[in-house]
């Protein structure tokens, strides 16, 4: 009896097979193939580190990495600060309103890529609504704003980071209980010293984890930048795509090496997030 049931149990694991085949065919094998290609020369032969050397020393690709890191860093920090302020304000309202706000944030996270780029062109393009208002009112920073520059791209990145950051930061505030605030106040702590000694240390691991997710989110992004500037603005994701599907002669080996570098940065971000989450858990939050 026990034996049949254990065989029956093992049989149930058969449901795993289609899933594993699928993951293999559309994720694992392609990724392994890409890693293998990154170590080949331009003809797809041999074993060489040349593509990595080229990717890391060629000023064009070096600049692309720098641009990607810069724009991701600035948009993540800005998104995070906005989300920290807004999420706290959200927690001050009734459950119904809180759920509404979270639902709106969730909804807006879908508003990325081509639609977002297009909407920003309508607002801040050379004949955009805000640009025209800026001209009318004589505000030069708005009237002369170049959406297709680094500043413009950063602005659109911040827009899609904000709702994502709110979704990630909002639950963190649940870790801070009202009783703690009352207790601290009863013991004579000011609002500032409560946040300085209790609030911020409690939030910190989660905030850092969120930051790394936002970094990864921005580093891997492609659609918004592509829709806004085509292949003109030099970002790592734009370079990779141009190398394998652009107008120029394709170079899969170099594209693969750059993609592996990007993937390593992404995985590092995820590991940091996981590490921060376990730090929070260990503190019993």
């Amino acid at each position: 009896m026990a034996r049949t049931s254990s065989i029956q149990n093992k049989m149930m694991l058969l449901v795993l097979i289609p899933l594993l085949v699928w993951l293999g065919a559309f994720e694992l094998v392609p990724v392994l193939r890409m890693i293998a290609m990154s170590f080949q020369n331009n003809d797809g032969q041999g074993f060489t580190l040349g593509q990595y050397v080229k990717g890391l020393t060629n000023p064009l690709y070096g600049k692309a990495m720098l641009n990607s890191l810069k724009i991701s860093f600035i948009s993540s920090v800005a998104g995070l600060i906005i989300a920290l302020v807004c999420s706290y304000s959200i927690t001050r309202f009734t459950t119904k309103l809180r759920d509404r706000m979270i639902m709106i944030s969730n909804m807006i996270t879908n508003f990325v890529g081509v639609p977002l780029a297009f909407a920003y062109m309508i607002l801040l393009g050379s004949n955009g609504m805000l640009t025209l208002i800026g001209k009318e009112l004589g505000i030069r920073s708005i009237a002369g704003f170049d959406l297709y520059s680094e500043a413009g791209l950063t602005l659109t990145y911040i827009y899609y980071q904000v709702p994502m950051a709110i979704l990630l930061v909002y639950p963190l505030y649940n870790g801070i209980r009202e009783e703690w605030k009352e207790a601290a106040a009863m013991l004579g702590a000011s609002v500032w010293s409560f946040w300085r000694h209790i609030g911020i240390p409690v939030l910190l691991p989660g905030v850092l984890g969120t930051f790394s997710i936002l970094m990864a989110n921005a580093l891997g992004a492609y659609a918004t930048a592509y829709a806004l500037t085509g292949s003109n603005y030099n970002l790592l994701s734009i370079r990779i795509s141009a190398l394998v599907s652009g107008d120029i002669f394709p170079n899969f080996q170099l594209g693969s090496a750059l993609a592996v570098i990007l993937a390593v940065i992404m995985i590092a971000s995820l590991v940091i997030n996981e590490w921060m989450a376990s730090l929070s858990r260990r503190r019993g939050l």
Binding site: L28, P30, R33, M34, L219, I240, V244, F252, G255, L262
Partner: peptide
């Protein structure tokens, strides 16, 4: 692990191997 994969390899990265294969 399998649900983490798409986050580690964004579309622009995993597309390369897919195009080749």
């Amino acid at each position: 692990i399998s649900v983490l994969l798409p986050f580690a390899f964004p579309p622009v990265v995993s597309a390369i191997g897919l195009i080749k294969m």
